[in-house]
């Protein structure tokens, strides 16, 4: 009698337990939106890209070149291994969810500069198993710790913008050097097997400088204001002012990631 009762109990317990198979992962999923490194930021750096002004190839090249030289970004010829922090794509690819059949070809083919959006709710940070990428509370930059990254590339699967690049091989032989064989900057190069992306020039901000691309486009005639950088939480910043006064757009906003790179013009 007693034996039967226990078996009955086991059966019921087991059946109930089977249904609980989802519980552990779901509890984990529940942690996600309020994970410790996705807290609200005190400030939020943001960028406004003026599409009119970056139609000049000289402006785009200045931005890309400054970025590559500042961060020792390699130039790997194979596009499928290329490291890109700031790249040029056509309007129809960048704003795929905002185009329609009646748009003229010259609209669709406009050049757009794309970079990491330093999202308010970054999916890459949510999925990273080692906190090698995290959202910095002090200024909202989505940071990368190259020492911590294990190279699982989960962040690349999670990023809806294709903003991340993986070092498939040792990048050093592909980095520009001067006549003496020295790199153009002492920003650490990366090693094979880690993921990298735009860091909004966190190292320059620390020294009170603007991001390299923002500074570089200003030097180009007609490039003044092509890229504007500032604090979105400060209502008096230039980016806040522009976004108040001018119609703007951002990439794939319906996903809820909260991109902080905006486009006008």
């Amino acid at each position: 009698m007693e034996k039967k009762t226990r078996r009955e109990f086991l059966k019921e317990a087991g059946t109930a337990a089977l249904g609980l198979g989802w519980a552990l992962p779901l509890a984990a999923a529940g942690c996600a939106p309020r994970g410790h490194n996705i807290a609200g930021s005190q400030r939020q750096w943001a960028m406004v890209v003026d599409l009119e002004k970056i139609q000049d190839p000289a402006v785009r090249e200045a931005a890309q070149k400054a970025c590559a030289r500042t961060h020792n970004i390699p130039h790997i010829p194979d596009p499928q291994e290329e490291i890109q922090w700031i790249r040029v794509e056509s309007f129809e690819h960048v704003f795929e969810d905002q185009i329609h059949g009646a748009m003229p070809p010259h609209e669709l083919e406009r050049s757009v500069l794309v970079l990491c959006n330093h999202c308010t709710n970054p999916p890459c940070v949510r999925v990273c198993p080692t906190q090698a990428t995290w959202k910095r509370e002090s200024d909202g930059i989505v940071m990368m710790d190259m020492h911590r990254c294990i190279g699982c590339r989960y962040c690349m699967a999670a990023c809806p913008y294709g903003s991340r690049s993986f070092n498939w091989r040792d990048p050093r032989p592909f980095i520009e050097t001067d006549a003496e064989g020295k790199f153009l900057s002492d920003f650490p190069t990366r090693t094979r097997g880690v993921v990298e992306k735009c860091n909004f020039c966190a190292e320059r901000l620390r020294d009170g400088l603007e991001p390299a691309c923002v500074e570089a486009v200003r030097e180009v005639p007609g490039g003044e204001g092509a890229l504007v950088f500032g604090d979105l939480t400060d209502p008096h910043s230039e980016v806040s002012h522009i976004l108040r006064e001018t119609p703007s757009r951002a990439r794939r906003v319906t996903l809820g990631t909260g991109p902080n790179v905006f486009y006008i013009g």
Binding site: T177, D178, K182, L184, D186, T189, R190, T191
Partner: peptide, 8 residues
């Protein structure tokens, strides 16, 4: 592997 001496 990553860090450089001053001046790159």
């Amino acid at each position: 592997e990553c860090h450089t001496t001053p001046g790159g």
